[in-house]
Design a protein around this nucleic acid. Structure first.
Length: 426
RNA sequence: GCGGGCGUCGCCAAGUGGUUAAGGCAGCGGCUUGUGGCGCCGCUAUUCGGGGGUUCGAAUCCCCUCGCUCGCCCCA
């Protein structure tokens, strides 16, 4: 209350919550590496200009959501709001943007200054995948299938894939010309937000959720009708191949996505169980970005998955905590020394071993072991210590008769045998 | 930036103007320094997000403010 608080839109994650995070991350990384995709790490902090140029000045992200500040050298810095621009920058800077066949992933925090709500935070986390140098439609398919399968691997059901095509730069310019003419005529019928976008970012008007505007837009020229033959063909092949892979999709001609750099394929995966922030994965092709940022002409496609939303969707079975295998109850000077050594020895095995270092009474230590639902306990007291031995006992769930054994400290063979019989083979 | 809902202990909560602010969980201590989940006993909010006001009297009513939350816009 009068003390420090975390900043709005940020969260603390505690061990019990992180079990799920760690499990999800493990599955993700495993799936990515099986698809031969390699990790890349770029700074969280970048020059502000990178995002303005990369994402586009008229976008919501750039115009109102960035965490931007001046550093001590008066440089304008920004906490990254997304990952693609940074990856593009890193590749160009290191002279490898034109080297084809880069399949990369990254995972980490992103920052956008917005009002938090369910499934939305100011600091959030994304897993991003970028295929750089790939032009073929099959790379689009590979990207979409990968995203689709990763979500499936996590046991997430009831997902919807929406796709659209934005054409290439020329298609877009042609469309924009006639769309702007139409907008000029129908300007007064649009909602205020959309009117503002006419000069800044006209394409985004297509995406308006305003019911009235939506209705009017039904009579507007369609980007789809301005696609070149080549672009159209590309899109048809995409749909055909998705069908072949039995990945269900919905066409959404109003799906333009918020960032300027997209070309051709744009897609989103949503889930109805997420509330109003339904998008768990968004992505698309960005053939012009790298050139526009100063690199060589390099086609590319990628997607990003929101980890918070993913965690929300992932099943409860990923929350299970690892059970303690052995809890070491110990009291008395020599006993405590013996117990310390024993715990070090036991951690050579793949066991979760907890050494009680409270010095509390035996009964307290026992209660703790029970509370943790430890599979077994080791007891070392003065008596055992003086004989250079310890007692190991299996905890039974039903509190019935227990299996107990006294083992000499030197007798590693007997200890190992006991562990194998009682803890490994279950 | 704009709407709706909500702020009582670490968590879940009762209390809706009358003087000591229920209860449960968790935590700590004890019964019980050396041996099993149970049980029983005790401890843990001079104060109800903060500030001001009304009143003899406020957690309860009013105003302001802060925070959380859900939605809008947009996105992961």
């Amino acid at each position: 209350m009068n003390n420090f608080k975390n900043l709005r839109g940020t969260v603390d994650l505690f061990p019990n919550q992180l079990i799920k995070w760690q499990n999800v991350e493990k599955i993700l990384i495993d799936q990515l590496s099986r698809a031969s995709i390699k990790e890349i790490r770029t700074p969280i902090l970048e020059m502000t200009e990178l995002f303005i140029r990369g994402i586009g000045e008229g976008t919501d992200v750039v115009s109102k959501e960035m965490y931007t500040f001046l550093d001590r050298g008066e440089r304008s810095c920004t906490l990254r709001p997304e990952g693609t621009a940074s990856v593009a920058r890193a590749l160009i800077q290191n002279g490898i943007s034109s080297k084809p066949l880069q399949k990369l992933w990254y995972m980490g925090p992103m920052f956008r200054y917005e009002r938090p709500q369910a499934g939305r935070q100011r600091q959030f986390h994304q897993l991003g995948v970028e295929f750089v140098g790939y032009e073929a439609v099959r790379s689009d398919i590979e990207i979409i299938a990968l995203a689709w399968d990763i979500l499936g691997k996590l046991g997430i059901k009831e997902l919807n894939l929406e796709i659209n095509t934005l054409g290439d730069l020329n298609d877009r310019l042609n469309f924009q010309k006639s769309f702007l003419e139409w907008l000029e005529i129908n300007k007064d019928s649009l909602d205020v937000d959309s009117q503002k976008r006419i000069n800044k970012n006209p394409l985004r008007i297509l995406d308006s959720k305003n019911v009235h505007t939506k209705k009017i837009l039904e009579n507007a020229p369609r980007l789809f009708d301005f696609l070149s033959e080549k672009s159209l063909e590309r899109y048809l092949v995409l749909k055909k191949q998705l069908k072949f892979l039995k990945i269900p999709y919905i066409e959404n001609f109003n799906l333009v996505r918020g960032l300027d750099y997209y070309t051709h394929t744009a897609f989103e995966i949503t889930s109805g169980s997420l509330g109003s922030q339904a998008t768990v994965c968004g992505g698309g092709r960005y053939d012009n970005l790298i050139k526009q940022m100063g690199g060589k002409e390099t086609p590319a496609i990628g997607f990003a998955i929101g980890l918070e939303r993913l965690i929300l969707l992932a099943g409860k079975e990923l929350e299970a905590e690892r059970q303690t295998d052995i809890y070491i109850v110990n009291k008395g000077l020599n006993a405590e020394l013996l117990a310390m050594n024993l715990s070090r020895k036991l951690r050579k095995y793949d066991l979760l071993v907890e050494l009680d270092v409270t010095g509390a009474s035996f009964s307290k230590q026992f209660k703790k072991a029970n509370k943790l639902k430890s599979k077994s306990i080791i007891v070392v007291g003065d008596e055992e210590a003086s004989n250079n031995e310890f007692v190991i006992r299996l905890f039974n769930k039903d509190n019935s008769e227990t299996k107990e054994e006294t083992i000499s400290v030197e007798n590693d063979i007997k200890l190992e045998k006991w562990i194998k019989n009682n803890l490994f083979l279950k």
